[in-house]
Design a protein around this nucleic acid. Sequence first.
DNA 1: GGTCCGGTTTGATTTCGGTCAAGGATCGCC
DNA 2: GGCGATCCTTGACCGAAATCAAACCGGACC
Lengths: 203, 203
Amino acid sequence: MGRRRTVSAGEPLIWEDDDSLLVANVIEGVLKLTTSTADGREQIVGVAYPSDFIGRPFGQTSAASVVALTDARVCVFARNDFDRFAREHPELEHKLLERTLAELDRTRAWMMLLGRKSAPEKIATFLLDMSERLADNGCMTHIGPARQFTLPFSRQQVADLLGLTIETVSRQFTKLKSDGVVALPGRRDVEILDRAALQALAG
Amino acid sequence: MGRRRTVSAGEPLIWEDDDSLLVANVIEGVLKLTTSTADGREQIVGVAYPSDFIGRPFGQTSAASVVALTDARVCVFARNDFDRFAREHPELEHKLLERTLAELDRTRAWMMLLGRKSAPEKIATFLLDMSERLADNGCMTHIGPARQFTLPFSRQQVADLLGLTIETVSRQFTKLKSDGVVALPGRRDVEILDRAALQALAG
DNA sequence: GGTCCGGTTTGATTTCGGTCAAGGATCGCC
DNA sequence: GGCGATCCTTGACCGAAATCAAACCGGACC
């Protein structure tokens, strides 16, 4: 019933305010959910990792665009097929409800960051969050947050996630590096040298 | 199975990070959902109106505090009773899923406001949103957004909702008044004089 | 090796909104 | 009506982050 497809990095899958025609499951890769203003400002309102659900079931339009950050593989369904199927399978609806409630919790925690945290706090919180999200996505080789990881985001995308400008993000990264809190071996690579310091900064 | 209770203005119903012991339906009144930092900064992450659902089913802890903004009547359920009941009644779970998805959409739209909008844009967006939310909550006497309404929020609470300080909120209200965009007949009363201007300001 | 070219960093300057500090209004209560 | 507490407004000033602008880096490609 679902159809597999690939989405290459930068390619959109769903457009904001479009009719909600499809929903999908992420198999591999990372995608961003964004909303934009008329004058082009962008805010990333969610990030979808493997096994995450994307799209808007039971609704006429999608509130956010979905664009692949890395090459991704997804399993897409026609929305009305999915809706019908879901209503006939309470177990599926229950699973979807649990995921949606968890996503709402995460989204609300992010509102705190957007509304009330300073730039250094935002960056520290972001790095700790990434360190947990990107931890051992393979298997149970090691538990706990990752000490070293590769961001699926460019600097501009980090800015769009945190409600900052690219320049501020860059300056804060540089500051953390020169303070010895993190190492930045590559454009998108982060190594956490002093987790306690990051936690203190995160507020 | 549910038990009715009243919550008076300012009284908490659920505490952040507490065990999620109860869920509830709002019958009458308005409540705020908030998260706070250790040093006392607060962000309102949601507002519950009559017929809205509050609490965190299928989860161990609640991510937000719930406090009444006005005197309120709610119908509370023990969370594990509710969870069991819901799993046995797919229609209820479906309804809850629809509401949760709608709430997630609204929350994501608010992230755009928190991360990317200026103070004037935030205030204009807020007033238009209130004008829709508080419209004809009685019956179908008149459709469309309300021209005049009473906010369920103090200035501080508006600030906590928009990620601003109380002083900035106050200044922006004063500006709108002196520009003839709104009239402010009482502390919490708003009358929209020029909706088009507000929409233009909202961005 | 050179040379684009997008993404990133760094610097100078501005500005928006925060902070600090007084005043004023409004409401409940005696 | 008078009084006090709380909430709100206003003003002066400051600072964090945005803006503007320029240099820098690291790949891809020749």
